[in-house]
Simulated assay, not measured.
Amino acid sequence: MEVLAPAATASAILFFDEVYPVRAAQEQAEKSKLNAFGTLARLNPLNRPKADTVNLAKWELRYEPFWHVVAHREVDYTNAVTYAVAVGNEHARSIEVEGRRFEPVPGPKPRIDLPVREHCQRRIDAVVYQDGLKRPLKPQVLQSYVDRYKANPREQVDIEGTLPPRMSFATVLQLAQSRLAAEAVDAHEIHRDVATFDRIQLYYRPVFAFEYVWSTSGKIGVIEIDGLTGDVVENGEWFRDRFEKVMTREMLFELGAEAATTLVPGGGFAVKALGKLTE
């Protein structure tokens, strides 16, 4: 399968602005702070977190990555099959098709078996929504962000609190390519088989993280508040990875056919820069 790279305009880095304000996010976190240490701690009658023993240690607004890839595959092929053609004349003893004679197969519905070659064109589409931190977030949740909220393109990553993706550009391309290849094509001969990446976008969504300390046990818990929806995650994480320098779109989405054999086996292009950020 030949792979074609997208145009430069098809790749983009986009940031969502927070919809849920920090004050409302902190109020939500305070309501849920006793749940930051797990169910067992909350249900322990002898030693459970209480409002006066759980205190906010620090908070941050960070931007978490997810990938959106749109690709399609076009296949031109020939398929050799046999058509069962009904014979309408019950008195016919043979049927001639372009100089070839066929004898009807007897039965309640007489027919002839006609070998043909089908010249076919097929398009296969793939849409990938993938969390950039390799968490099992549902694709429909990530898609809902794109469908419901406006994201602004940026030529460089220079916003404080931006997390580098742990899933590399090359890996997400392989995922999309494998989905295209997974569609079986029933063909005797393939004349053209091309996969094209129409859109490759790296989205960043805002998340408020509040770290709480349970003073009587020394435990630490994190409450996350989605900066777009206000949804609460009680078993949150505190990520320490950050971009160490400003990264431009060209650096993140640099394409090079010479790297394809190492980053995208069998592909026609790959990414050189982003792999360094996700090692």
Score class of each variant (00 low, 15 high):
residue 4 L to Y: 09
residue 6 P to V: 07
residue 6 P to L: 03
residue 7 A to I: 08
residue 7 A to R: 13
residue 11 S to H: 02
residue 12 A to Q: 12
residue 18 E to H: 15
residue 24 A to C: 05
residue 27 E to A: 15
residue 37 F to N: 01
residue 39 T to G: 09
residue 45 P to E: 00
residue 47 N to Q: 14
residue 48 R to S: 15
residue 54 V to C: 06
residue 57 A to H: 04
residue 58 K to H: 01
residue 61 L to T: 14
residue 63 Y to H: 12
residue 67 W to C: 02
residue 70 V to W: 02
residue 74 E to A: 03
residue 78 T to I: 08
residue 78 T to E: 13
residue 79 N to P: 01
residue 85 V to N: 01
residue 93 R to Y: 01
residue 93 R to A: 09
residue 103 E to G: 06
residue 112 I to N: 02
residue 113 D to T: 07
residue 116 V to D: 00
residue 119 H to Q: 12
residue 121 Q to G: 02
residue 126 A to G: 00
residue 127 V to N: 11
residue 131 D to S: 12
residue 136 P to T: 04
residue 136 P to W: 03
residue 145 Y to Q: 07
residue 146 V to I: 12
residue 147 D to P: 04
residue 149 Y to C: 06
residue 149 Y to K: 00
residue 152 N to R: 06
residue 153 P to I: 03
residue 161 G to T: 11
residue 162 T to H: 03
residue 164 P to E: 06
residue 164 P to Y: 10
residue 167 M to Y: 06
residue 170 A to W: 08
residue 176 A to K: 05
residue 180 L to T: 02
residue 182 A to I: 00
residue 188 H to W: 05
residue 190 I to Q: 08
residue 191 H to T: 10
residue 194 V to K: 00
residue 194 V to E: 15
residue 195 A to F: 00
residue 195 A to M: 14
residue 198 D to S: 08
residue 206 P to K: 00
residue 206 P to G: 08
residue 207 V to I: 15
residue 208 F to T: 14
residue 209 A to P: 12
residue 209 A to N: 11
residue 215 S to F: 01
residue 216 T to P: 01
residue 219 K to C: 00
residue 221 G to Y: 01
residue 221 G to E: 02
residue 221 G to P: 12
residue 225 I to N: 11
residue 226 D to M: 08
residue 231 D to H: 11
residue 239 F to V: 12
residue 240 R to F: 13
residue 244 E to V: 14
residue 244 E to D: 11
residue 248 T to D: 04
residue 249 R to Q: 13
residue 250 E to L: 09
residue 252 L to T: 04
residue 256 G to P: 15
residue 259 A to Y: 10
residue 263 L to V: 03
residue 265 P to Q: 00
residue 267 G to D: 13
residue 268 G to F: 09
residue 272 K to C: 00
residue 272 K to L: 03
residue 277 L to Y: 11
